[in-house]
Nucleic acid binder design. Structure first.
Lengths: 334, 334
DNA sequence: GTGAAAGCGCTAACAG
DNA sequence: CTGTTAGCGCTTTCAC
């Protein structure tokens, strides 16, 4: 069933059918009606590939994320997909893992698949070593590249991010102002975003005249989905460093701290205060529930899709937008 | 940059270029080399739409799920996407929500987008009222439909599922054999899968000669991502029914039960035993950690993609495969 | 308001 | 082993 069949049955040319299909105005109401009824009767739907070939677009956006089973990324994908679909775009999802080569490979793949644009989810796609960002520059020459929670200055690249520095600065400051000075910062990746959080922690201490001590900034090298192993990690570092609070770079790590406290019989928040990050579902699953930073994921997703639609409609759009996180107080802090 | 440009620069015909591109064997090593070097030099990549139009395929699989932010579905999407990509397929993700009309609409949309096949994730796509499954039958006339954890008998539909009935039967039986007779079954959806779990619970009681009591089978009508509300729900039903164990249809609900126990000061598992379902990350985030049913998600995903690849290569494949779940004992039971 | 016809870039059957 | 050519199904000028 092609446009030719329809045109024949309706007694018009294929051009007219095409016009009806695309809602062009220069078709008489009568002809339109006739064509529509034939289309309806035949249950005809246009071939998407042929359409794509002619228009050089299939209304498809690529979503790249390192690991869609990660809570943060999964939620981001969810919100982005939903918003895109509401705007009549589909999305192709591609999980790359964290290796540079794979990220490159799959970004390329999407560009070659002729997606209209790509959204890179999470800060893992931007490297500190700028040479490793060339693959993004290349892609941006072809199509708009949108970064969710990534910061990168480049033509045709647009960023939406949460101010991780400020959020952690505030969270840490809150603890200090509650009289807690020995604060452990726990992180598990060295992305730009993670390092910004670390900076926030450091600035808070410095602003309050407290010393920066390397052993109070612990990098957890394991898999943050393995919650018990985080607790074990903390147990291992415990003898060397004594602290009364943990500021974690994500909720998973914070849960690990909660588990650690349980194991050691430490009372939360009396003996140990804990602050997580992301306000994910994990933050309400433990006892007491996590105080955590809400980093506005849904807002960011909404914004980034809006930006994308704007770009695709040739509107002028801001290259970078920054939102502020918010500390959600629950049971692991005073 | 098209195949014509390449053919011209390489001094061969477009057919030859096409052959080289597709790895056909009937090209002399010399010609192939020349063509490849021109392609390389020009950085040429074939146009995917034109390819799709000719072959009527873009090596793309549609994934439909109701809610990709749900832990189970998110993990399923992750595993499926990864396996597909390893087999050189891309996937288009589409989250439908739980309404019939939207499920229909988006399945149609994917079929019209000419995906090579669709995978429906989760049991939400099959309704008990068989008339509501017609949209799947329609789709199956066009392309193979794969069901992850869905049970549906129809030509060109393939299922991979975990035996939820047996898993819950076993879990419940274990409790009874530990001397616990007052067991609450908690569920939050009425999909086929959920009802199979309910059956499993009922059979366990019946087999042990225990009575079935309606008030011991509680349907939680809220959003299972809202953990605190599950605990509240349990508090609300508590005065009417006394129980010493909860068997939950997913880990979220089980976490709700853990929270409830904390609120009431019940000791786990002494005064309240709890069994979850899915072996998700939630099962290790609480204290004590959840005893839960591992329903073999990764295995199912692996299997379903294998089946799909088989079908697409015209191999004969089994229409239905059933795996058994496994009870993972942790701290919420003896 | 409508139709004819020229692409879009590739694949594959056929001929040599 | 290589080239010619006819599609694939649609969009879009350009005439009428």
């Amino acid at each position: 069933m092609t446009i030719y069949d329809i045109s024949e049955k309706a007694g018009v040319s294929i051009a007219t059918v095409s016009r009806v299909l695309n809602g062009a105005c220069n078709v008489s109401a009568q002809t339109r009606q006739k064509v529509l009824s034939v289309i309806e009767a035949c249950g005809y739907t246009p071939n998407a590939f042929a359409r794509g070939l002619g228009l050089n677009s299939m209304n498809t956006i690529g979503i790249l994320c390192a690991d869609s089973s990660d809570l943060y990324q999964a939620n981001a994908v969810y919100h982005i997909e939903r918003e895109l679909r509401q705007n009549n775009y589909n999305c192709i999802l591609c999980c790359t893992g964290y290796g540079l080569e794979d990220k490159q490979k799959y970004l390329n793949l999407l560009v070659n698949k002729k997606v209209d644009s790509v959204i890179l989810v999470g800060s893992a796609f931007i490297a500190d070593n700028d040479a490793e960002n060339d693959y993004i520059r290349e892609a941006a020459k072809e199509i708009p590249v949108l970064l969710l929670n990534g910061d990168f200055d480049c033509e045709n690249v647009y960023c939406a991010l949460c101010d991780d520095f400020k959020s952690v600065l505030q969270a840490t400051t809150t603890l200090i102002e509650n009289g807690i000075e020995d604060i452990l910062f726990l992180y598990d990746s060295k992305t730009h975003s993670a390092l910004r959080k670390l900076s926030g922690y450091q600035s808070a201490l410095t602003q309050k005249g407290l010393p920066l001590r390397a052993e109070y900034m612990q990098y957890f090298p394991g898999n943050h989905a393995d919650l018990p192993s985080i607790a074990e990690f903390l147990s291992a570092v415990a003898p060397a460093v004594t602290y009364r609070a943990v500021v974690a770079a994500d909720d998973n790590l914070a849960i690990g701290a909660v588990k650690f406290a349980h194991k050691k019989g430490l009372s939360i928040p009396n003996e140990l205060s804990i602050i997580g990050y992301n306000n994910s579902i994990l933050s309400t699953c433990c006892e007491p529930e996590l105080t955590t930073v809400d980093n506005r994921l849904e807002t960011l997703c909404h914004h980034i899709v809006n930006t994308l639609i704007g770009i695709l409609n040739d509107n002028e759009m801001p290259q970078k937008v920054i939102f502020s996180g918010e500390l959600v107080k629950r049971g692991t802090t005073f």
